[in-house]
């Protein structure tokens, strides 16, 4: 149904190559998240798949059929935009009906699908309203409804939650995940937020400067980042990266330890430092420690009951089996 293959796809805007040759396969029914810092080419990649941008070279296949030169309308994909991109002059009902109207779906079938989508998305009471009269979350659901009724081969999401406030974002994240479970349709989801990537994805594609740094399941990326960039990008707070003598001890150029893999003590440990800031979240406390001589600032996760203040001395000890080692090229040493 929704297997998408990219074969040596490149994209250049004028002289600037934003995507060097890139191969990627997205299996049918997979929830794939493209993640990376802004400007990494993830949105461009999505738009190439959608057909909103033309590839410079290479080939895109959808369901093994060449789609490189198909216009977006013919690719059988649906897209949800960051700004929702609802048609402001149409009611919610007409917005949702629009793709079906374009596809020539019979009226009664249109109505059936609209009603189904509306009840699934809690929009039944708002069908006669215009987008301007809806809240952000409702608009987002209308955009999703408009995508669902097309029964597309794949859904494309372009940072759909970044315009919502934090609380709504968590709710919508769940809704989209549930939707995926129910529909079992391929979804490609672009975000710069690694939390969204970790929580939603079957498969994460980490991009930097148009290059795929690593592809894998969320925990694979967490446990075995292929390079320093992925190590730093996946996981929150960020992994502590240490160079110099301490790294050499482990036969590496750089070693990395996640904040949750450091044990802190007020009395003893491998590395001594001073607390700069302690962030108390209740369940956890994050300590930012300086003066260890290893890195400018180290982050440590400790239990909520661990009580230190600014200026206190702490000792940090890494869990031996949780140390990531990277060579001079920044690649992981297995």
């Amino acid at each position: 149904m929704g297997r998408i293959t990219l074969d040596k796809v490149t994209k250049a805007f004028g002289e600037v190559e934003v995507i060097p040759p890139l191969d990627l396969t997205i299996e049918d029914g997979e929830f794939v998240v493209f993640v990376g810092p802004s400007g990494c080419g993830k949105s461009t990649l999505l738009r190439l798949i959608a057909g909103l941008e033309d590839v410079t070279s290479g080939e895109i296949r959808i369901d093994s059929k060449p789609a490189t030169h198909l216009p977006p309308a013919k690719r059988g994909l649906a897209m949800v935009f960051q700004s929702y991109a609802l048609y402001p002059h149409m009611t919610v009902r007409k917005n949702i009906a629009f793709p079906m109207k374009m596809a020539g779906v019979p009226e009664d079938e249109q109505k059936r699908r609209i009603d189904a989508a509306a009840s699934a998305l809690n929009l039944t009471d708002y069908l006669e309203r215009r987008p301007g009269q809806l809240s952000g979350g409702q608009r987002q659901r209308v955009a999703i409804g408009r995508a669902i009724v097309r029964e597309p081969a794949a859904f494309l999401f372009d940072e759909p939650l970044s315009n919502l406030d934090a609380a709504l974002r968590v709710g919508m994240r769940l809704e989209i995940s549930e939707l995926h479970k129910r529909l079992e349709t391929t979804m490609i989801y672009v975000t710069h937020d690694q939390v969204e990537a970790m929580t939603m994805a079957d498969k994460i594609v980490v991009l930097q400067k148009g290059v795929i740094e690593q592809v894998g399941a969320p925990l694979e990326l967490y446990n075995a980042p292929r390079n320093k960039f992925v190590a730093g990008f996946i996981g929150s707070p960020k992994m502590n990266l240490i160079e110099g003598a301490e790294a050499t001890k482990h036969d590496a150029q750089t070693i990395g330890v996640r904040p949750e893999h450091l044990v802190a003590s007020t009395t003893e440990g491998d590395w001594k430092g001073k607390v700069v800031v302690s962030e108390h979240l209740g369940s956890d406390t994050f300590l930012h420690v300086e003066g260890t001589g290893l890195a400018e600032l180290m982050t440590v996760r400790v239990g909520g009951e661990f009580n230190v203040n600014h200026g206190d001395t702490v000792y940090l000890t890494p869990m031996a089996d949780k140390i990531h080692r990277f060579d001079a090229q920044g690649l992981r040493i297995a």
Binding site: L52, P72, A73, S83, Y87, P88, F98
Partner: peptide, 28 residues
């Protein structure tokens, strides 16, 4: 916003339909 026209394109509208159903009404 260009995204609205792109949305129409994604929704299967031909260029003509995109102009007639989306662009022109919004530009009325």
């Amino acid at each position: 916003p260009g995204e609205i026209l792109e949305a129409a394109r994604m929704d299967g509208a031909s260029l003509r339909n995109e102009v007639i159903y989306v662009l022109l009404p919004m530009a009325v």
